[in-house]
Design a protein around this nucleic acid. Structure first.
Length: 423
RNA sequence: GAGCCUGUAGCUCAAUGGCAGAGCGCCACACUGUGGAUGUGGAUGUUGUGGGUUCGAAACCCAUCAGGCUCCCCA
């Protein structure tokens, strides 16, 4: 045995069962996206670090990116997010694309972080965006896509919710409190951390970053005001649209939702599972109207969100929402009685495949108990056996592994009988 | 990048300085042309890796790797 070489820290190995989960998520993501008329696309997996330097935030670029020199000496980065690539792709063809652009994608991303539950260094992410429209109704549609996805995987409003806020609204409130522009980033962080800190520690932290007592009290009043959205015309329109879209029960206004990324300009939202065993957002996004101009395109409003596969995968697992894993894609096993009967078994298997039935032949003439055990483990539904007796009479033995009943029938009836057994 | 916890059979875990074990799974047989259930028997292993302390280490110490919890950040 060769010496063991470990997998790279934080990477994922998708054995068939994990691959099944990943594909399940992908399939539901695709269904939700397409039901709202979004087109699938993708960007490069490798980009220059400069693409992210502009707007992704220092933390992401300096600490969390997989960056290395290629053989030509240039620095390249495994993409940590998709939005900058999307912005560039749209900016490059701004004159020829049909707007509004409605695009979605599901692909791999990398971030150099400490792996924990719900967080790995390699993950798959759903990105979905609308570009070219600045209406709150576009934001509402994206939230509705998110809700449609949650519903499609069995996370009903009792189990998951989407929390919404608006940066512009909060900016106006901060202005009213006389909180200076320079303190905005710190105050955003302060709000983000509120649920994680003890009240008195949080108060002390607020004063430490330079708020006075009056501002702190005002901030607390704002953060406790769940009717604050009525002051925002954008949010009023958003909630009206969400009502019409039939997803209102999933969505709640929450002034505590800020989101770290710098490029959000207006409505922001995050979805959480409500039992709270995992305190990470399932998905998150919002409106980013300045990003296109920032990467060199003409100004173009945009809105979208992203969802990682790791958190949603754990939540589906913990809630028992993953469909039963069926190991073999074939429902029929044709056993091999002995070496001389291999051709018979192969011929039957080929015939079944010809009519569209996924079929496996056992690849060696092992003892029948072993072959049946294999079929059972693989959760196959039908086993076909051609022994010397059947071969002589032109028959096959067809056994249902579901109820154990076996019939011996003429070879030319096999397809019909098996079809019936498979339902 | 920082602090803490964990790492033993394929899996889940016992063994607290003195012979490395159990359950599940696996293999064989009961059943020489048939899976699941039952019974009987069998094999599990460089105790993550490398060093150290000790008559003796899975256990104690150091280093290292991986996973987890928290901070940070975020999907």
């Amino acid at each position: 045995m060769a010496s063991k070489i470990q997998s790279v820290k934080g990477t994922r190995e998708f054995y068939p069962e994990e691959m099944f989960l990943r594909n399940f998520i992908y399939e539901r993501v695709r269904a939700a996206s397409q039901s709202f008329g979004f087109q699938e696309y993708d960007g490069p997996f490798i980009e220059t670090i400069d693409l992210y330097a502009a707007k992704s935030g220092e933390e992401l670029v300096k600490k969390q990116s997989f960056t290395f020199q290629d053989r030509g000496g240039d620095f390249v980065t495994l993409r940590p997010e998709l939005t900058p690539s999307l912005a560039r792709m749209v900016a490059a063809k701004q004159g020829s694309l049909t707007f509004p652009v409605r695009w979605w994608s599901f692909g791999p991303f990398w971030r150099y972080e400490q792996p924990q539950k719900g967080r790995s260094r390699e993950f798959f992410q759903w990105n979905i965006d609308i570009l070219g429209v600045d209406s709150p109704e576009a934001d509402a549609e994206l939230i509705a896509v998110a809700a449609a996805f949650l519903r499609s995987v069995g996370l009903d409003p009792a189990r998951a919710a989407i929390f919404v806020n608006n940066r512009r609204l909060m900016e106006a409130e901060f202005d009213a409190l006389g909180i200076s522009k320079e303190k905005r980033v710190e105050v955003s962080n302060l709000v983000d951390r509120r649920t994680k800190m003890k009240p008195e520690v949080w108060d002390a932290y607020a004063l430490e970053i330079g708020l006075d007592q009056k501002q702190l009290d005002g901030l607390k009043t704002i953060l406790a005001d769940f009717d604050l959205w009525k002051k925002s015309e954008e949010l009023v329109r958003l909630f009206k649209a969400l009502d019409a879209l039939g997803v209102k029960e999933y969505v709640k206004f929450d002034p505590n939702i800020m989101r770290g990324l710098l490029y959000y300009t207006s409505t922001v939202f995050e979805a959480f599972e409500l039992s709270g065993s995992l305190k990470r957002a399932i998905l998150g996004g919002g409106r980013y109207d300045n990003l296109l101009a920032d990467v060199g395109g003409d100004p173009l409003p945009a809105t979208g969100f992203a969802m990682g596969d790791v958190v949603i995968g754990i939540i589906l697992q913990e809630n028992g929402l993953i469909p039963e894993f069926k190991p073999s894609p074939a429902s029929v096993l044709v056993t091999v009685f002995n070496e001389s009967l291999f051709p018979k078994s192969f011929a039957i298997a080929a015939e079944l495949r010809r009519v569209g039935i996924n079929t496996m032949t056992y690849p060696e003439p092992a003892k029948l108990p072993r072959q049946f055990k294999f079929a059972d483990k693989m959760k196959m539904k039908v086993a076909v056996t051609i022994g010397p007796d059947e071969a002589e009479k032109g028959q096959v033995a067809v056994k249902s592994l579901v109820n154990g009943e076996q019939v011996v029938i003429p070879e030319n009836e096999a397809v019909d009988v098996i079809r019936k057994m498979l339902g």
